[in-house]
């Protein structure tokens, strides 16, 4: 029982990280059809932001609280710059954005290597996150619990934004029918840019949060991006509910498989499970219903 509970919690916290990354991806992918491979590098930028902020502030606890909003801004601004400089020229060929943004990602990784050096950096954890909380007889580490709560809080914020604000209605209208949204006077260009800012900012927050779990290197984003995309594919493109379910199920599945086998086998089995799953639901858990033939 204790093993079961501990694996569930480990899986949920791993899923929380994936969710933070994947929410941004599913927004941009769903709304614009753009596949942003540089999203992982926005996460890396967030992680380095935490490192720099911590150096400046000097106090681990305060540093983390400052780094979260700053990381959001850094990630978001990088996203807006990418959208304005490169991606807006490519909306008519979405598949090619994958390669272009991968190139941008390579450049950003090398910039990080040149600025911060190749060895991984450690960001000290605040003391109030060092202990653990007993949950059902299992000691759940505070850092992972914080991650889980942070992820849920971000998700609720995004949901509130999409459901309750004028901006959210514009975003949803653009996702559902771009031409019609323009007809009723929504500036889809502006909506696109704001969505990009939001999604990339969430990656920045994920980067800050990841410094609680381990050290930060130039390739930290690259190691998460493939899995995050799988979450988007399984969840159904542009579907927040699907992304949530997919992120947590993949996280938990992986945690149990890792316990039963080994880390490397677990990844392969998860991948095969996804291929099998797509046999049943090729469009992901929740698909946008269209009248297309595909």
């Amino acid at each position: 029982m204790e093993v079961f509970v501990s694996q569930v919690f480990t899986g949920l916290s791993a899923g929380a990280v994936l969710l933070l990354i994947a929410v941004g991806l599913t927004l941009t992918f769903g709304q614009m059809g753009v596949i942003n491979m540089a999203h992982g590098e926005f996460l890396m930028a967030g992680a380095y932001t935490a490192y720099v902020v911590n150096l400046v502030v000097g106090d681990a606890g305060l540093g983390l609280l400052v780094a979260l909003p700053v990381g959001f801004l850094v990630g978001g601004l990088l996203g807006v710059v990418l959208e304005a400089s490169v991606i807006r020229w490519m909306y008519h060929r979405p598949l090619d954005t994958l390669l272009v943004t991968y190139g941008v990602g390579l450049v950003l990784q090398q910039v990080a290597r040149d600025v911060f050096g190749a060895p991984a950096k450690d960001v000290p954890s605040p003391s109030w996150l060092s202990g653990s909380v007993p949950v059902l007889g299992y000691d759940f580490p505070m850092a992972r619990l914080f991650l889980l709560l942070l992820s849920v809080a971000c998700l609720l914020a995004v949901l509130a934004l999409l459901r309750r604000t004028a901006l959210g209605r514009q975003v949803r209208a653009t996702v559902e029918n771009r031409d019609l949204a323009e007809t009723v006077g929504i500036s889809t260009r502006r909506t696109d840019r704001i969505t990009f800012f939001l999604g990339s900012g969430l990656a920045g927050i994920a980067g800050v949060a990841l410094t609680l779990l381990g050290s930060t290197g130039p390739t930290i984003g690259a190691s998460y991006i493939v899995e995050a995309f799988l979450v988007v594919v399984v969840g159904g493109i542009g579907q927040l509910k699907g992304t949530v379910i997919a992120a947590f199920s993949i996280g938990v599945l992986q945690a149990f498989l890792e316990y039963a086998t080994s880390g490397s086998i677990a990844k392969v089995v998860v991948f095969l499970a996804i291929v099998v799953f797509l046999q049943v639901r090729p469009q992901g858990i929740f698909a946008v219903r269209t009248r297309s033939l595909a």
Binding site: F29, G33, I35, P94, L95, L98, V226, E227, F229, L230, V232, V233, G263, S264, I265, K267, V268, F271, I274, V275, V276, L278, Q279, P282, A294
Partner: peptide, 26 residues
């Protein structure tokens, strides 16, 4: 498995990439 279910475009690209990532990890 992939083409018969009409998985294509970006889905296919991401799957193929995940495939080789899993292989390298293995």
């Amino acid at each position: 498995a992939i083409f018969k279910r009409r998985v294509k475009g970006a889905y296919f690209a991401i799957l193929s990439q995940a495939l080789t990532a899993a292989f390298a990890i293995l």
